[in-house]
Structures are given as structure tokens and as C-alpha cells.
Design a protein around this nucleic acid. Structure first.
Lengths: 206, 206, 206, 206
DNA sequence: GATGAATGAGTGTTCATTCAT
DNA sequence: TATGAATGAACACTCATTCAT
């Protein structure tokens, strides 16, 4: 929730700030991220920063939201008609989307990575836990859908399964991203494939 | 590697410092952990801290080592005769051990959690990456063992699989720890059970 | 190389800081000089200091540069046409200029004094040794000029002679400064006179 | 003036402490010299240090005294019958002795070097200025002797000349020591020779 | 006589935020 | 609206010295 002053900024300037912020928060967890560095790299005055954003957290929330929105665009195609698809196909698509997102937007992905790790730390749950909760919620919904469709067993622990799928997805996007650089990208997608197969036999209805 | 002065301290005082350190590092990643807070909570003078430890990192390494040693004690029973056991049984035991460790030593587990997330960050790889590497290595070894025993398919990507099992184990210990508090402990162990089953059908030899 | 923020300061404030810095560095070698004392004496906040200067060394370099620049102004009149003058007259002028500089700017001179002594000490050669080297170089050049002009013998060890003249000049400015306070100023200039005469018979061409 | 406890120490231990102290004070001016490092390198307990010496300054005074005593041994042969020698021969011997001392005892010489530079600094005049004064006094005495003998003009400023000779001698020992390492040792002695000749024509009686 | 644990003021530096212009 | 100077608390770490054992 930046102030209007931020949105009224010239496109170019706004993007410069945005870029500097991405740079900073993708390389540092929230607490370590430095407003000083951001304003320096953005080429704006210190005071200006606080005219655009209430404080560091305000900017951070904004970025998280942007990540969220962008990530959604990767998901929507497959999520459009979730009821048409087999649960496991849907899940595969979601994971693949996450991987693709991380590959296309490594900085945003890194921020997400830091975000999840910052979660649970004293100061800072508000923003994070909300997003984290939403993420888990999505998995819960498609799990319920899957049960209704008869794709998966109905005796699973919904909360824990949702949490598990959420963590698994994040781990895929965040932890395996380094395998992309080593050219083993295809293998990561194979891993997803394997995972889905495993899940199918694990929670899938026989 | 604290200095002798630390080990020579009266049991009570040493434990007070140890406790304050656990408190700090279990609630903050390394960079954010504050020596100031530690000494305040431990009730010792600032200068004293530096008579016990070379620096912040020294204390940290010490804690990591303690974690490592303690965690090993949870593992050793099952690792004693790794060749006698089916790979999946072994893996189940390892994961269960990790969970038990996390349950018994939530603070240590949390430090381990932060540690893994600090990995890859600029300043601080030395200690961490070594431990992380060792962890992954262990999984690689038991995977190789499993292949030799004929428990698992021989066409898997060893590195990535080891990495995956490592991450999975950590995720179980760290991320699912919160389910312990809500009394759903048994379900977490069930989750492990389910995971093993899934893996069996995923990478197990038919 | 202070930051712009420093130069933008109100004259009065800037001079207060400048004065406090002079005070500190003229009474302490670099390592012992205390930023704390400077800010206290300048009446500014600790944080402000670091808005004006990158760090302690930055301020120091600035002072050294100021000294250098100011000292040059004392020298230039005589150095304008160095080829027109007899070597010994030139040298006398240089030494006299140095003395006059030290008399007019005792604090700056003291800083220079400390600087030369800090030279060769572990941490800090960059700035100092550069200036020191330049100083020696100048003497070397005028020595060469003197030889060309036929004022001095050509069989002298250039490097050592330059070094000697450099040290001699510094000693005059720094060590004899205390005689100024006791009103024996004229005698110091006499000393220079005597020195020149001695040198003439020492390295002058018969 | 170390305490008796120091002198009662076993030769070997005492020398170990002495050596560590030399090491420290030859590499750092007084303020920067670290008692911590000394006790560590000497292999003694922190508390022991303060049982041997009242404080850091106490040890320092002791070292200065030792330097002084040792330096005297280099001088005495030539100073035995000062009245038998021409002033300039005496001076040459004194300077040569100083150089030899510096060459044989580079650490001690370095401490002397630091000492002279520390002189004039707030905290610390007591010890230093005393020794410095004594040094100058010696030159004054031989100057007076030289006048009586008729070797030098009687109209010179005694104080300033003594000071000058003192500084010159120190400069030779301290500043030109680096030329020793580069094998230009002989040239330094030549420099002394040249200096004496110059002085002769400067203050010598025609 | 020897020890080494304890101390607290000191070091330089970074920080997010405020506010007058 | 934009600026950037001002701030003081926080940071990790070092120090010479004391003192109980």
C-alpha cells in the first residue's frame, strides 16, 4: 500500500525504485534489507522514500503483493477451469507454473523464498502469514475439489496435506532453482513428474 | 570452539549463557542475532562474552556443532547397521529420528532451520555449507546403498534425489514442527509413513 | 573526499566540524584519533558524521589534502621559475616556506607531523605513502635541476639526498616549531640559513 | 620500575616477557600497544602481568630505560675521554654509534623511534620528555666542550644547536635504517661523514 | 606468587525514520 | 512534492585494569 505519491510518479522513476527494491529484497531478508541502499540505487532522496511509502514494511508489503499478482498470472491459465482437470494434472500444472515463474522471475522468487523464511519471526507475521495462509488455502481448495471429483482418498488430513503440498511446491521453486543454472532444468521437471506419480499412488484413490 | 574460559565456567553460569544463546539464535538468523541481547539475557558483561568466545561466529559454530552432535545421537541407533535394513525402512527411521529430535529440542531444531536458510547468503557459507554438504552426502550414501541392495531403481539422478530427500527431511522436522504443538503429532508421523510409501512406489524397484 | 552533504553545510557548522577534526588529528595519530571526540566537540550527532564522511579515513584524507593544498600555496611563489634560481636559494625558500606554513597553521603542521610518523605502519600506507612519495619526488627533481645547472656535484646519491632533504625540511617545520612559541623564531630562520650554507659546502660544486 | 616479582622471575620467563614486550612496543606506539597481546605472546596470565608491573606505562618505562642503558654501552667507548677528541670526531663517533646500535638492535631502535613521536602527546610526557631532555643535554654538553676546546664558534645558539644535533642523530638512526636493508649501509655511513664535514664548515671555527 | 574471570567504557560504523525547507 | 540534513540507538568488538581464589 504505497501512497498515491508513488503511483503518481513517472513510469520510469517508479520502475527505478521498484527495481532497486527488488534488488535489495531479493538479496536480503527483510530485517537486513537496507532503505539506505534502496534509495541510493534508485537515485532518489531519502525523504522521498518516505513520501512514497509509510516505511520499509510498507514497501515490502507492496512487493509481496506484486509477486503474488504476478505469480497468479502464471497459474490462472491452468486454474481457470479447475473442475475439468484431474487433481494430479492440476497439481502438476501448478508446480510447473511455479517453476516457470521462478525461472522467469528469479528476483521475485528469491523474495518469496526469503519471505517464507522470515515467517514465524517475532516482528513480522502480519504480511507474511497472510500470504502464506492464502497459499495454503489454495491447496486446501483443490484438495477438496480432488476429493469431490473422486481423484483422491477422502480420509486424508486436509490441513496437513495442504501444508505439505504448499511446502513441496515452494521447495521445488526455491530450492531446486539452482539446478536450473547447471542446465539440469529438464531433470527438475522430471522430478515434478515423479513427484506427481508418487503422490498419485500415495493419496490417489485406487 | 569456545575458549577454555567458557568450559571452565561454573555449570550454572555456563548454562545460563548457553540458554541465552539458544534463545537468540533460535529466534533470529545469524546476522540478526544480537550479542548485546545475549549478554543481557545471560546476565554477563559485554567483555565477558569475548573472553568465552572469539566472536559471534565462534559461538554460532559451537551451537551448530552441539546440534549436530545431538542430532547424531538420535540417528545412530538406526544407522548402526544400515545394510541390514531395507532402504525405505532406513529412511523412515531417519525421518522419524529427525522429527523426534525436533520435538525434544525445539530450539536446536529452529537454529538448524535458520542455518539452512542462511546458507548461500554472502558472508556466511563456511560453517553452514559444510554441514549442509555433509547432510546431503549422507543421503547420497544411503541411496547408493539402496541401489546396491536392489531396493531402488538404479536410473535415478543421485545428486538431485539426495538433495530432495535432504530437503524433505528438513521440511518435515522444521515446517511440521508446529503441528506438534497442536497435538497432531501422530499425524505427522503418519505423514512420514505416507511419504515413505509414496517414495517406494516412486523410486522403488518394482 | 567528504560527501556533498558536508560541503553543503552552513559555513559555521562546517567550520565547527573542521575545527574539531583539526583538533583531534593534530593531537593524535590516526589510529588514536576518536570519531566520538570529534562529534562531541563539533556538537553533532554521531550519525551525522557519517553523512558527511564515508568513514574516519575519509575525513583524514580530506584534511591531508587540505594541508597539501595549503602548503602548496606557500611554496608556489618560489617554485614558479625553479630554473631561474640557484639550487641553494631555491632550497632555502622551500624550507622557509615550510616554516612559515607551520607557523601560520600549527595544527595542520602537526597533522602532517603525525602523518609522516604513521607512515610505514601496517594499516595505513595508501594515503600517506603517496603524499610522502610526492614530497620526496619534489626534492629529487630540484636536485636533478641543481645538477644540470651545475650548482651541485653530480656524484651524489640522488635517492638518499632527496630523502635527506625531505626529512630535514620536515624536521625543521615540525621539530623546531616549539622554538616559535618561545619567540626564537628568528633563530630558526637563522638555522635554515646556516643549514643551507652547510649544504653548499657539502654537496655544492667547488 | 617493575616490581620485585618481576626481577625474581626465572631468567627464561623474564626474557620471554621482555621479548614479547619488545615485539609489541616496537611495532606499536604506546597507546596502541596491547597488554593483551603481550601476555598472550609471553605465555603468562593476565593477572601476572599486573603482578610484575604496575600498569602498561610501568613496563614501558622499564623498556625505555633498558634501551637507554644499552644505547649508552654503544656510546661509552667514545665518550670515555671526550676531552681528548676533536668535537667533530666525537660527533661522528656518536652518530656512528647510534647507527650501529640501531643496526644491532632494530627492535629497540624502533621503540625509541615511536617514543620520540609519542612525545608531546597529552597523556604521556613524563617518561619520554625526561629521556628526550637527557639526550639533548648530552649534545649541549659536548657542544660546550667543543667551544671550550676551540673546535666550534662560540656564537651559536646552544639550545637550538643541541636540539638540532639531537634530531639529526635520531633521524639518521631511525629514518635511514631502511637503507640498511637495501644494502646501502655504507652509503649511510658516508652520509654521516658528509654531514660532519658540512657541520664543520657550518659551525666549525675557521 | 600465580591465576584468569569479570568488567564497562571505549572503538568505528549502520540504521530507519523525522522534519524543516 | 521533493529534498537531504539530523538523529540516537543499535551493531560487533577491544581495551586496560581489578580482584577473588
Amino acid at each position: 500500500m504505497p501512497k498515491d505519491t508513488f503511483y503518481n510518479l513517472a513510469e520510469e522513476k517508479r520502475m527505478k525504485i521498484y527495481g532497486a527494491a527488488l534488488d535489495e529484497f531479493s538479496n536480503h531478508p527483510f530485517k537486513q534489507a537496507s532503505v539506505n541502499r534502496i534509495v541510493k540505487n534508485a537515485g532518489i532522496a531519502k525523504g522521498s522514500f518516505y513520501q512514497y511509502f509509510k516505511d520499509k514494511k510498507d514497501l515490502y508489503k507492496y512487493l509481496i503483493d506484486e509477486i503474488y499478482k504476478k505469480k497468479i498470472t502464471y497459474l490462472t491459465p491452468t486454474m481457470k477451469n479447475p473442475f475439468d482437470m484431474n487433481f494430479f494434472d492440476l497439481l502438476r500444472d501448478i508446480y510447473a507454473s511455479g517453476l516457470k515463474f521462478a525461472k522467469d522471475n528469479p528476483q521475485l522468487a528469491k523474495i518469496g523464498y526469503h519471505m517464507l523464511r522470515d515467517s514465524g519471526q517475532e516482528v513480522f507475521n502480519e504480511v507474511i502469514d497472510e500470504k502464506k495462509g492464502e497459499g495454503i488455502q489454495i491447496y486446501k481448495q483443490i484438495l477438496e475439489l480432488g476429493i469431490k471429483r473422486g481423484d483422491i482418498r477422502s480420509d486424508i488430513n486436509l490441513d496437513m496435506s495442504a501444508y505439505f503440498l504448499f511446502q513441496l511446491g515452494n521447495s521445488l521453486s526455491n530450492d531446486f532453482i539452482e539446478f536450473f543454472d547447471t542446465g539440469e532444468e529438464k531433470q527438475v521437471f522430471n522430478l515434478v513428474e515423479g513427484m506427481i506419480e508418487m503422490l498419485k499412488s500415495g493419496i490417489g484413490k485406487k
